[in-house]
Amino acid sequence: MDQHSSRLNSVRATLSVITYPIQSLVNLPIQLFKQTLKYSVSYSKLQEENAQLKQKSLLHKTDLLKLSTLEKENIRLRALLEKSFKLGEQVLVAELIAVNQAPYEHIVVVDKGTNFDVYPKQPVLDATGVVGQVIRALPFSSEVMLITDPNHAISVEVQRNGLRTIAVGSGRYNRLNLPYLPNNSDIVAGDTLITSGLDDTFPQGYPVAIVDQFIKQPNKPFAEISATPIANLDRDREVLIAWNNAKRIQLGIENKPQPIPTPTSQTTEPLVIPPLPHPVGTASAPQ
């Protein structure tokens, strides 16, 4: 009943209002420790860090400039090919609540729930790669299944050649299995796996894992391939919950009468990113 329908979700949500204080209570010592660490940083060190961050931010800004030009160019080229273009994502920073649910599962609790419009099946990322997906959104917290959970599978493709397959969690934080690739498939150790976007959960193009082993099994139909997740699954304190703009923008329809669009001005006109219904989109969480 609870597994297959959503009828008991409201019951669980109500009960979780009472259990949430217990979770915060358990998390409190760690939070306090972090707070004291924050206050005990020296002024000179902060200045140094600030200078470093400013430099980094400058570098990133120049990168972004390039990226926006590339994006526009990509949109234009896709318009020429009359293919739809998928918009980018908006993210919300969520902090992990340090609680331990079941030792045999890779599920973590984060401190943003339906009060921030988090919903199940939402992709969760970190600065380096894909972390997992929201499996349950409660009023003040939500449960995130990591990609290494034995019950989790993610649709990926090899960045080098676009070979698509499925990466299944192994139950260990440093390993994913690719059980559905034949012995002669073109994949080598060191290949980067990125999300293919075919599962309609994860946005396309985010790094997932790096292949570290490819063992041919001549007596079996599929090879034994394992990969290491790129995201710091067991060390993360903060994750990003992403809103996937699933709506594809149809290109080329408006431009039909003039098949060769002039750069930038006309093609980008209908591509103004519509504001999301979520009020949270751009607001990053208070740290």
């Binding site: 009943m1 609870d2 019951v11 009960l15 979780s16 259990t19 079941a102 609790v109 349950r136 449960e143």
Partner: peptide, 13 residues
Amino acid sequence: GLFTDVLLGRTLG
């Protein structure tokens, strides 16, 4: 037990 189910993220019951 019901609260424990919610706390540990198990199936209710």
